[in-house]
Design a protein around this nucleic acid. Sequence first.
RNA 1: GCACUCGUAGCUCAGUUGGAUAGAGCGCCGGACUUCGAAUCCGUAGGUCGCAGGUUCAAUUCCUGCCGGGUGUACCA
Length: 581
Amino acid sequence: MSDSKQLAAAPIRAAIAELDPSQTLSVDEVAALLAAPPKPELGDFAFPCFLLARALKQAPPAIAAKLAEQLAADPNTGFAAVSALGPYINLKLDPAARTARVVSAALDPAWGALPDGSGKTIGIDYSSPNIAKPFGIGHLRSTAIGQALANLHRTLGYRVVAINHLGDWGTQFGKLMAAFERWGNEEALLDDPIQHLYDLYVRFHEEAKANPALDDEGRGWFRRLEQGDPAAHAYWERFRALSLREFHRIYERLGVSFDHEWGEAYYNNMLAALVDDVKASGITEESEGALVVKLDDLGLPPCLIIKSDGATLYSTRDLAAARYRYEQLGFEKFLYVVGHAQAVHFKQVFAVLDRMGYPWADRCIHVPFGMILGISTRKGTLVFLEDILNRGKELVREIMADREGFTDAEREQVSEQVSIGAIVFYDLSRGRIKDYPFEWDAILRGLRPGEHGPTGPYLQYTHVRLRALEEKFAEKFGALPEALSGEATEALHTADCAHLVALLERYPATLRQAASELEPAVISRFLLELAEGFNTFYSSGTRVLSDDEAATRARIALVVAVRRTLAHGLTLLGVPCPARM
RNA sequence: GCACUCGUAGCUCAGUUGGAUAGAGCGCCGGACUUCGAAUCCGUAGGUCGCAGGUUCAAUUCCUGCCGGGUGUACCA
């Protein structure tokens, strides 16, 4: 809820009460009803009168007319204009007061930080790549969404604990060991470990189609690993270390970091106790040689706790992990940023936690996302994320080739930032539940000359323009403004500027909405609107910097407010903000 | 079969939780660089909101049933 809505709602509430003393609408409820008129010329807010029709036994347009008349007659409402149009009352706020309040708030160092989550802890499980497989484009989704949600909640005041739930345990490890035993090559492993392990993994799956005995071999190796076999353990440790080295290189490029890298194996020594406790809670049964919790009444397949061969599963480790995390963190919420293909799995796990009697079971939330179509680790059609980052970087270098005034180091840094911005923003610009096909052109959109669109580079470019204005202002007038008074806003009383002010005012509510929907794209779309609003203003013919110092100071205050908001939002999304590009 | 999910302009997507004439971007076409960065901006065209019912003053939005795509559906993760 923006401040302006609250301010506007109070007099409306009073006018309604005057018309109908029995009316019980609160100021907050009135504020919630306020909407934006379809055209900005109509006003800043619109109040629909439908809800009052029944109580007053009058037609909405008649009510609107009466309320508008009352509001217009009262000099203390703070509205610059009130008019009824059909069933709506359209309200215009006093632009000077609003502009000064919003811009000054945006210039405050605390802009973007909110107290909502103060004292609360939120855990987030994201990225979570499988060891011994390359970090593919598919992992970008969980990584980018998870990091954005972590950043978002931190700025909302939460204590965020980011956990990388590495897939460092499980049957696929047995398969890898079996494959390495058969076809592994020491030299190849040292030369390019991930590539070699990936090749082995693909080959294993190909050959296993014709030779099912291979799968048994893989399961055998995994069993040896679980039983502490030294040879199996040595493989495990080695594969894991080699993989982590690669992952960390990518995380560093993406600006991603974790508080804990508690992989699946981390919970191994907690499994026995977990299995005992599940049994003790009396909800398990034997079925086809396995230990399961039946969930028929929820329309879910049984949750397997122990396989018929005695080994544990993903679910077992997730149950142990959930419990351990709660003990360690005492979280308010715990988010699992995992593809929607695993929706059933999480329903099962959360249901079992619930049946075990844990009251915090419903604080565990699966945050699903759509998949990237057309890639498969097993089929070997995987696209390495690092290849995409590098290719993007090359494209940016080409664009920058004919630009002067950049050192080699700057070119290196900027091409990295813009490339990452394009790729990360591409992923975060649509609703997370949407599937999308892997297409080089689409992913690298905005990185070729002449390409326009709602992209990361578009936002970065807008930011760069704003930065350039700030620098030019500083050269001429000195320090940038830190606030804006109501008397000084006149130069901003244009449609373009009012639009920007209204957008800025929405930023805190946008952050809250993104958090409540667990949807980074809410921020992405807001930033696109903001950048578009600024670019329209910038190209409109009105110069920010002029000989009129008062107007220049007002406009630069707005520029700084927009730039800071843009930078803040982009940082939340994990999109870098270069100063030049 | 069942469950989840998506279906809005040629394409990619919004739609403020039920409100005014359903909006953007891309692409097409046409414009704007001798003043702050053209990786930008402005304009034109483009719609039975998958289909059919229902709820009510009002449905793209809520309910039911279909149609179509995607993903799952016990010893992979």
